[in-house]
Design a protein around this nucleic acid. Structure first.
Lengths: 199, 199, 199, 199
DNA sequence: CGCTAATCGAGACGGTACGTCTGGTCTTCTA
DNA sequence: TAGAAGACCAGACGTACCGTCTCGATTAGCG
């Protein structure tokens, strides 16, 4: 029988505050960008004291991760369809996510801050990057079951993930290209070919 | 005959200052990261007044671009070899560049700041991103000459550029992977296959 | 027959808490001074919740008054001796009190806070200042009985009180002088002369 | 020939700022009292940045001393008249000063803060207390010249100063008495008698 | 050789955000 | 009902940078 965690003493934390803070964070990320996002403004917009904010998230980085983690968690591989259509779906979902200003700001801000901060880089990877590799892992499993690929080694999870994530980010946030259907088709064709699916 | 610009009146700008400032910028980018790089510190380390610094580069972003632009300009396609070895060379040069802390910090900082600032995004693209597409353009020309590809359309410059640049950045700065020979080989193989070079 | 107050419902207040709080207050007054004395620290040192503290004393000022009132109440005019020796005794007792850091801090803190707060000034006077005038009143009575002075008007209670209290405070807390026997003798001689006792 | 101090480098400090800051300080001391006087408010009212304020006066205490030092420096012994009228004049000037709310607040706040801070206590004495002893010293000189007293020892400067300053403060700020002519006369009579001037 | 004009260093200027601390209140469970 | 615990909002703290400004001192070309 699992021992229930003993109820902590004192006034419990407001559950409403969490939602208000994360919503305020998303709003300000979208409106102001990374450098001009201030903890004080988040607190003000959430109608919350700064202490309340810092008690929950000790830094802008942790706050931003919490604010976008849910959205990234909603990415999913469709239950039906072959590998190529799975890739296409994931690419489309990811480009949709990267259309949202708060996601652009949070991701790039976190990456920038983490370049000279190994601890943060690790937190970012563990919290919002690596979990999404499940999509590639699951896709490989299905492709094997369906016989689309012959050996697991035909798909290196890390490489495929980096190609997809990296290219989409580069295309949308740096080259500033549209997430048009045309581009998605072109890119998915490239990846499929690269994986040897078109022979 | 072009009229030479009339020599401006007054004391000429110190030529030494430029070098000192850019060197100080690179050093601090490497040591401190993007957010903690301050104009005041750059001026101090360069033994220069803040006025002098702002007169030349009006913002941290412009300064960082100037500090790393040269390094990116040194990327080049080898004079000899087939397309695949050209890709491999460029990937290796780019991973080498991304090993330098000042380059990591400057690139990611600029991208982060530009997410909500279209003018800056355009400046970044024009100044340090798009010029490198010459490598892909030149590679395609050579491949055509050598008959490795049949039509220019077989290589979409923008897509190939985004795949290479995006994947390398994602691998090195986010997934935090090593720029090992092994990885380079694996990635170049993927790209070559994607381009239809291995049939 | 007076009706006894009905015993209040619920848990009775802890009697130990009062002592613990006042002791903690005296300790922190002595260690930290007035501005750095915080209600939170008092509660922590007394092992008491802030609620409990505020229920009993609604402000730092009230708390400080309670913490030092007892000490001031212990001042007393000796049963024997002439007026001059009475004055000397009271001056000595008062200088002794002002040697205690908690007394210094509490008195000056209360005076400072009361300069722009008439209500507090009145509370301070009624609670800890004016009651001590009994010493002068009693001394005058005795001096009259003994024939040391001829009319009550020879001693103006308020003036004499202000001279003694004010001078001792000025000497010890501002001029930072020692409460040496020598000084006490010199001062008592001055007051006695002022009262016309030395002719 | 004294070497003139070399002009310091950089932009000179604004002379207007000093005046604005001290005026704002006096205003807020009077309106708000000691504890509610904040450096931020002073800066705001003086139309000055907080940095500008802290550059000149590193603490509320130093600021308050500067704000009232001038007023205390204006106390002076009248050129004519005997010792008793000199004392009376000084007492009247001091009671007038203590009528000003900013003076009340500053003096008592400084004394309160200095009870547990020897360094501050010393600063207060050196800056605003001890300099006023010149009045007693000068008065003694004159009284000797005029033959009102016979030996310097008849007047102990420190004692007389503490009696006058302490009693006036006690009367006005603690006992909350009026600075009426009547009271001044009564007190001056007491002091004169104490000094042995009425034989 | 002096004049004009831009640049140099130094550092003060008004602002803004930081992350922490305290005040005084409120909300929960337990005694 | 009191008590312990601790979360809550509000706001001041003293510091760090921002980008601009105001100084005197340089350093060039031009008359």
């Amino acid at each position: 029988v699992p021992v229930s965690t003993p109820r902590p003493q004192g006034r419990p934390r407001s559950v409403r505050a969490d939602d208000a803070i994360l919503a305020a964070t998303r709003g300000l990320l979208a409106e102001r960008g990374w450098a001009d996002l201030t903890m004080g403004d988040v607190a003000t917009r959430a109608n919350v004291a700064k202490t309340t904010l810092y008690r929950r998230w000790p830094s802008k980085q942790e706050l931003a991760m919490a604010a976008v983690a849910d959205m990234l968690g909603e990415l999913e591989l469709p239950a039906e369809g072959d590998l190529r259509s799975g890739i296409e779906s994931v690419v489309r979902q990811f480009t949709d996510l990267l259309t949202r200003p708060e996601m652009q700001t949070a991701l790039m801000g976190l990456v920038a801050d983490s370049t000279r901060d190994p601890a943060l880089r690790r937190r970012v990877r563990e919290t919002i990057v690596d979990p999404q590799k499940r999509l590639v892992v699951r896709g490989r499993e299905r492709a094997l079951e369906r016989g689309e690929i012959k050996v697991p080694a035909q798909i290196d999870v890390d490489l495929v993930f980096d190609v997809i994530a990296g290219t989409v980010v580069q295309h949308m946030l740096i080259s500033d290209g549209p997430a048009a259907e045309e581009w998605i088709g072109q890119f998915v064709r490239f990846v499929s070919t690269g994986l040897g699916l078109n022979t």
